[in-house]
């Protein structure tokens, strides 16, 4: 616990840590302001196929729709922001030489690496929570509340989640997002234990995430067959399922388990590598 607090203190003492929060604030504020100015047009376009058959009334462009809309970009920009810190946890100490400061002290390497990993997960959680709080608070101020319309792009279906149910679902969705993003933190953390500089883990992690996202979206049978095994599939499935009607709990449970196994394997590998690592610099 003491080591975890020390690591957390060190992480939040660096200005680099706050870049991610600033970027998220910028994205959320810009998106919500633009949606305020031109959101009606977007909603009209989204609901146009249904307007011949249905009469849709009420506050459609509300905080929940905006939040779900912004959350859809979660798998693109949040991983990058997570790697900025998680990919730096061990490698920056190697670059600065402070890894020696740490490793010649009584705490074992296993305790040190565990404290660092927990800090990376804590940072990931704080980042997603900040994202959630900002989305919801600003959204409530600018758009107010209402039912959430769920529509899958390119498909002729639409569903409504009542206003009374949406906050809980959004809350669970963000909890799931933290779990999903922890896999990105784990990948970056593993690369961080292998590298001597911070750039390698950031580029490496983003390359892995992008490659799996691209392969998972290619309309080829071979990749469609493999898609259920990609971690990115489960990463997206997990939080999106909470905004589906009805919620498919078996998909959520399966994705949560698959991602959990990824986390355990990645952390054990990082621990194994770090324990055996020779510090030559």
């Amino acid at each position: 616990m003491k080591l975890f607090l020390l690591e957390t203190f060190k992480t939040f003492s660096r200005w680099r840590t706050y870049i991610s929060f600033a970027v998220i604030a910028l994205i959320v504020i810009l998106t919500e302001v633009v949606m305020k100015l031109s959101g009606d047009e977007i909603v009209n376009r989204m609901l146009k196929p249904f307007q011949r058959d249905f009469f849709i009334s009420g506050n459609v462009l509300n905080v929940w729709l905006i939040t779900a809309f912004i959350m859809n970009s979660l798998h693109i920009h949040i991983p990058f922001l997570i790697t900025l810190v998680a990919g730096d946890m061990v490698s920056s100490e190697a670059t600065a030489g402070t890894i020696r400061f740490l490793l010649i002290r009584p705490p074992s390497r296993i305790r040190i690496i565990t404290a660092k990993y927990l800090t990376a997960l804590f940072y990931t959680a704080i980042l997603v929570i900040f994202f959630a709080v900002l989305c919801v608070c600003l959204g409530l101020t600018l758009f107010g509340s209402g039912d959430l319309i769920v529509h899958h792009y390119g498909q002729f279906d639409v569903a409504f989640i009542p206003e009374s149910e949406v906050p809980v679902r959004i809350f669970l969705s963000f909890i799931a997002a933290i779990w999903a993003m922890s896999v990105v933190a784990s990948i970056a953390f593993l690369f961080s234990t292998l590298a001597e500089n911070s750039i390698g883990p950031i580029i490496g992690t983003m390359a892995v995430v992008i490659v799996f996202l691209v392969l998972g979206s290619l309309p080829l049978d071979f990749f469609r067959m493999l898609k259920p095994y990609f971690f990115t599939t489960h990463m997206i499935n997990l939080w999106q399922q909470f905004l589906e009607v009805p919620i498919q709990w078996h998909v959520i449970v399966r994705s949560a388990i698959v991602l959990g196994i990824h986390n355990i394997c990645l952390f054990l590998t990082a621990m194994f590598m770090f324990k055996r690592k020779d510090i030559k610099s």
Binding site: K2, L3, L6, K10, S13, R14, W15, A96, G97, T98, R100, F101, L102, I104, R105, P106, P107
Partner: peptide
């Protein structure tokens, strides 16, 4: 042990560096 040169967290104060060292 001091290997080659003393290494410290440059973004922290001397006091904080020693506090971290001491608590470890």
């Amino acid at each position: 042990g001091i290997v080659e040169k003393p290494d410290f967290y440059l973004y922290l104060s001397a006091y904080k560096n020693l506090e971290i060292l001491g608590s470890m």
